[in-house]
Amino acid sequence: MSDLKASIAEREQLLGQLRDVLIDRMRLRREPDEIDADAPLFGAGFALDSLDAVELVVCLDTMFGISIPDNAMLRQYMRSLNTLADLVIAHRREHGARG
């Protein structure tokens, strides 16, 4: 059960950080509690565009130390806040420390 609590806490915290990125860096005009974790980032949903995608890649690097040179690899995780969180969590497991 405490594993569950830890997982929930980790995801909650990450989602909070990612919501801040959307609001501060991508200038998304929504309140944090309006930003659903599974909502699409590109196309539908928040309609981020190709420029935002490039910026998001930079954020992943500067905030979480994730620097994957293969754009195609990254693209599959830039679908929703949840998939981004999946990537960050997996990266942490693999690399130990926080980015």
């Binding site: 569950l4 997982s7 929930i8 995801r11 909650e12 974790a37 599974d38 699409p40 599959q76 679908r79 929703s80 949840n82 998939t83 969180a85 999946d86 969590i89």
Partner: peptide, 27 residues
């Protein structure tokens, strides 16, 4: 809402184990 998060295990529907995942579920 307390457990509505992706990436959690330990749920059940009857005997079937269930886990939460992120959307979209395909690449």
């Amino acid at each position: 809402v307390g457990v509505s998060y992706a990436g959690l295990r330990g749920f059940h529907c009857g005997e079937t184990p269930v886990r939460t995942i992120s959307a979209p579920t395909v690449n």
